[in-house]
Amino acid sequence: MKLKYADHKDVIKWAFLLPCLGYLVLMAIFPLVWSLSLSFTRWLGTIMEKPQWTGLTNFRNILFEDPRFWKALWFTVRFVSLAVTFQLGIGLGMAYLLRNNFRGRSFLRVLFLVPMACPPIAVAFLWKMMLHPDIGVINSALQMVGLPKVRWTTSVLVAPFTIVMVDVWEWTPFMFLALLAAFEALPVELDDAAAIDGASNFQIFRNITIPLIAPVIVTIVLIRVIDAFKLFELVFGITSCGPANATESLSYYVYLTGIKWFDLGKGAAMSWVFLLIVLGISLVLFRFRKTV
């Protein structure tokens, strides 16, 4: 039987698509479905051979009987809000200041890429050493100028901000580079016209530039929010959740439950709750993006 041209085209299309779809099903859909099914079971992997069906017990456990989950979530939310806000503010300011062509601009761009290019776990250990309360270079520098030592990683009040500070150092360049590209894509005529009409620099920035780059801002904030929610390496490397659990993130708690304690059912359930929270926040941001 001879295939029609349209059918032939379909076959080729599916032939190209199938490897991708197969990969997607195997590597993304199957693990998701598998972990969802696990989340309705009790499976203490260290002593149980097979999972036991327990329905919604894990979810009830997490949401209503586990204060540690809520504490970790609260820290994560505070971290995301602060870190992304600072990254956006500093990135926006830097991009605005450096948007014009000047000597050494390319070099600066490459330099700003360095923190982003470092593996997060390396960043964590690098900063851990620099922030060491007794032998860290930062406290030594503070002492040299007559300032007192700061308990960067051992104070319950300071440690959460230390994690935010390191994350800001690492990811502000992402904001900066994305916003710099957005600035460069803006038509200069609008700024010129506004200037001729007597608008000040601040008025131009607020009423012309920001509205024009708003879609870019929302997009990069969305990317950073999703990524920041997965906070793990910095906590793991710098504070190990401490002091006094002040920096335990949700990802870290999921890791402890599922990987360290091998409580696979509860770990899977926790991951799903986590996923739904991030999805919810992403949906809100998506909706906001449409309005701008």
Binding site: P133, D134, K149, R151, T154
Partner: peptide, 9 residues
């Protein structure tokens, strides 16, 4: 104890 105690592994 020393000030950095909570950072002592």
């Amino acid at each position: 104890a020393p000030p950095g105690l909570l950072g002592y592994g």
